[in-house]
Design a protein around this nucleic acid. Structure first.
Lengths: 147, 147
DNA sequence: GTTTTTACTTGTAAATTGCAAGTAAAATTA
DNA sequence: TAATTTTACTTGCAATTTACAAGTAAAAAC
């Protein structure tokens, strides 16, 4: 799967990889909703189709945004974990949350409000750093088998 | 055109509007590349198809992200201008640029490097505020007919 | 050894994107 | 004033992406 880039613009190039219906949703699920396995993703609120999930996980792996591995003690279940490159999408995820909170409630009154959003508004750099740190710790724990 | 939202997550809701191939590219063109008219968009590097552009501009207008108007002295050319809601996408655009600059050069060596990126790295909050201010001034000028 | 679970694949349909040609209104030119 | 050009689309059809539903195979559980 080879990404075709539309032009030499950095922003458009980012969107050539991320600009579709599911890529950033999957990253959000990994970062914020403890999704690590194929089943975790299929059981999320968004209910992605399994053939689409399979394809998007491959693309994310090929782009270097996540890794796919297995624990030595479990040869069946695949673990999908964000790489550093993937973790650096955190500011984008946080900005999407803030924009949505500020502007989309008119269009989608059902949007939930949680205390994460309150923290993001108060100190978004801090929240970004905190999420990244927390993910690194969790990733280390999972990989060392003491999850 | 009525947006269907996948669930009550603010991030997923934002992506229900923005998560496709062209929506954020068009916003970027308006914010950074002085695209105001249908022709401006069709002549950009990305070369969007006219039927897609037409559809996406309608969707952006319906979402409240841009307005469509005409000058009294020119009843032919439509002016597309970002609203405040649209301008608040600036942080997302800037974060995409930063992520791409830091992580995508391996996949797309053609990505250009300009001094805008240098400024963004140095002071992204300042760049965001500067872009928004600059756009507001330009918008005012265009609307008062002294472009 | 059998059943269940997990991670997919497959065939097909619906939705989105794109190509190329065409149309109509407004502006420009002769 | 008439003819030509420009601008903003629309249309018909094709290609790609997303989605549904059923099926498959390997690994784990019973």
């Amino acid at each position: 799967m080879n990404t075709t880039f539309r032009c030499d613009c950095p922003i458009t190039s980012a969107l050539d990889i991320l600009g579709d219906k599911w890529m950033l949703v999957i990253v959000k699920q990994m970062l914020l909703e403890e999704a690590y396995t194929f089943k975790d993703f299929t059981e999320s609120d968004e209910a992605i189709a399994t053939n689409i999930l399979s394809t998007k996980l491959k693309m994310l792996e090929e782009a270097g945004i996540l890794t796919k591995s297995k624990l030595p003690t479990n040869r069946k279940t695949n673990l999908y974990l964000l790489t550093e490159m993937g973790l650096f999408l955190t500011p984008i995820i946080v900005e999407l949350a803030l924009w949505s909170d500020a502007h989309l409630r008119g269009m989608n009154p059902a949007i939930r409000r949680d205390e994460g959003l309150v923290h993001m508004k108060a100190d978004k750099e801090g929240v970004v750093a905190g999420l990244q740190e927390q993910y690194r710790k969790m990733r280390e724990q999972l990989l060392s088998g003491s999850g």
